[in-house]
Design a protein around this nucleic acid. Structure first.
Length: 570
RNA sequence: UGGGGAAUAGUGUAACGGUAGCACGACUGACUCUGGAUCAGUUAGUCAAGGUUCGAAUCCUUGUUCCCCAGCCA
């Protein structure tokens, strides 16, 4: 059994998370007649991020595991913030993550007529009324956390008057904000959500799907439970901040005598070194701190995709973080671990030099070019091999040579022999410097007997270097990314500052004169590779045929970097 | 100050009255034609104080700390 399976077995032998435990128990008792119906209900007012991925994997995952279904439903009840562009991106992202909702794509706005009818029923029942208080007055009447509110002067209107007024609200007879429809519950309720919450507000705005058909729009609390009810959802899973809203969710459906799903709340995801709120992400985009929603430094799904993340890595991450009712912050290291785990299995290896240093093999014939066989993926024999050209002039990584190597530096140095991967043993005989003392070129000799990388006499080298043949190399741009923020918690700032103060000025480094092996010509946008010894990279959609651009997804685990760091510290 | 939630190694999570386990991280070592991967090992925890019990992370009491709520946002 390999390690991943062993881990999975250990983890899965434990109990289900608390939500799955509820679903499992409901299935056992037949509470929902054996049905499991969940839903992922985004508002189409922004792009999805890794936090949404947690919710998506939870909802679609539960449906898949328990033989149920999961709806993708757009909670589009606020025409002023929502746009078709977001609908499209959300559909693309959920699909990219690998989930399927079959026929079950829904829009809250498709239920507006039904919601209106339900509202009429509530009015007829004497449980809702049209209120003429404006927004500010409504707030004043609501009271505070510690002081009860007081009844609206319009609370005791007759059913007939309410019916008439509500119908005229719908017809557009009143200006924005002039009236609302409110539930009649209890203005002294300790839960502020129960103090006669607004059900409808008047907004004369075009909706991205219903156009100008409506000028009254339902509030979240009124709409959401009805959407769940209409779709016969069994488990309505949402984040912790809606816990305070559950009594209202229940109240509406109970008063209506409608089908009544169970709302269950879980803690949203927080990740170190990043921000997750829509507001903050929007600000990063608008202030130009990143190039857009799909900037590879963004925790958005489209950003992660462009960075080179695989759906499998994100799903595995979502599985491992679990689900709970208390706030926690997961280390970005776990996400990166899941990433490397998947990419190591699946990425073809390739050689690329980020900071080139020219090497001349003095004893190698001028015009001779040979092709060496290289393994595409040592983790996957089926990936096969490829030919890599070798010639007299090569590029190696600048940092793979040191004139005065410190202890534990195993790579190239004057007089030292190393292996060029899949090629030959080479020994450094000279380092050419410019007027300023910078090393501009290395001269080496090679041992023809070591072709392929092994010495017949059995001698060993301590390092293997990646390289590319100078005359065959492709020029490329490579973008190196680091955390967007310098602090684990970007919100940790001094007085007066905000998260922008913790932006990492070095989160992006662009290398414009990289040399990559010729097989990378025409790499498909978003295709993923491992650049040997460096990390995982992903072809950026900005790539041109003759000049590819690669984003560094994540580095390889780098033991030498750690040793170096330790040496610097003393 | 009212109401609603929640506290287990550095981090994330199991244990539902019976040996506090797993993963990530960090650190050792083995192996290696990637200083990758892999393998072996080390590290470190029940918010606090009482109580019930043969036995408590788990049940009870009191306290502490943290999160959410006063949009005609979701």
């Amino acid at each position: 059994m390999d390690n991943a399976n062993k881990n999975r077995k250990n983890e899965d032998s434990g109990r289900l998370d608390f939500i799955r435990a509820i679903v499992s128990e409901d299935l056992r008792t037949g509470k929902w007649d054996g049905r499991v119906v969940t839903r992922f209900p985004p508002e189409p007012n922004g792009y999805l991020h890794i936090g949404h991925a947690k919710s998506i994997c939870l909802n679609f995952g539960i449906a898949a595991e328990f033989g149920g279904r999961c709806h993708l439903r757009f909670d589009d009840t606020n025409p002023e913030k929502e746009e078709q562009e977001y609908v499209d991106s959300i559909i693309e992202d959920v699909r990219w993550l690998g989930w399927d909702w079959g026929e079950h794509l829904y829009f809250g706005s498709d239920y507006f007529e039904k919601m209106y009818e339900y509202a009429v029923r509530l009015i007829e029942k004497g449980k809702a009324y049209v209120c003429d208080l404006n927004a500010e007055q409504t707030r004043e009447y609501r009271g505070t956390l510690t002081r009860p509110g007081k009844d609206s002067p319009y609370r005791s209107r007759t059913v007939e008057e309410n019916l008439d007024l509500f119908e005229r609200m719908r017809k557009g007879e009143f200006p924005d904000g002039s009236r609302t429809l409110r539930a009649k519950i209890d203005m002294a309720h300790p839960n502020l959500n129960m103090r006669d919450p607004v059900m409808y507000r008047i907004v004369h705005a075009d909706h991205h799907r219903t156009g100008d058909k409506w000028c009254i729009y339902p509030m979240y609390d009124w709409a959401h439970g009805l959407e769940d009810s209409i779709e016969q959802v069994t488990h309505s899973i949402c984040t912790l901040e809606f816990e305070n809203h559950r009594p209202l969710y229940d109240w509406f459906l109970d008063e209506l005598g409608a089908y009544h799903p169970q709302q269950i709340e879980f803690a949203r995801l927080n990740l170190t070194y990043t921000v997750m709120s829509k507001r903050k992400l929007l600000r990063l985009v608008q202030a130009g701190h990143v190039s857009g929603w799909d900037d590879p430094r963004m925790p958005t799904i489209c950003g992660l995709r462009r960075r080179g993340y695989s759906p499998q890595a994100i799903r595995e991450f979502a599985r491992r973080i679990g689900v709970n009712k208390f706030n926690s912050t997961v280390g970005i290291a776990l996400l990166e671990h899941c990433l490397r785990e998947d990419l190591n299995r699946t990425s073809p290896r390739v050689m690329a030099v980020l900071r080139p240093l020219k090497v001349v093999i003095d004893n190698y014939p001028e015009a001779k070019v040979i092709e060496l066989q290289a393994v595409n993926n040592p983790e996957d024999p089926a990936a096969g091999t490829r030919k890599v050209p070798f010639s007299r002039e090569l590029y190696i990584e600048r940092e793979d040579f040191m004139e005065e190597p410190p202890k534990k530096f195993f790579r190239l140095a004057p007089g030292r022999e190393v292996r060029l991967r899949y090629a030959y043993f080479v020994k450094c005989v000279d380092a050419v410097k410019d007027a300023d003392g910078n090393i501009v070129e290395l001269h080496c000799t090679y041992d023809p007997a070591t072709r392929g990388g092994d010495a017949p006499d059995g001698r060993k080298v301590k390092a293997t270097l990646h390289w590319v043949s100078a005359q065959h190399a492709l020029d490329a741009e490579v973008r190196l990314y680091d955390n967007l923020f310098t602090k684990e918690n970007p919100d940790e700032v001094g007085d007066g500052g905000d998260f922008a103060a913790n932006l990492n000025p070095n989160s992006l480094e662009v290398l414009k004169s990289c040399k990559v092996e010729p097989s990378l010509a025409g790499a498909e946008p978003l295709s993923r590779f491992q650049f040997e010894r460096l990390g995982y990279f992903c072809a950026d959609p900005d790539s041109a045929k003759e000049r590819p651009i690669f984003n560094r997804t994540v580095t390889l685990r780098d033991t030498w970097a750690r040793i170096q760091k330790a040496q610097e510290l003393g």
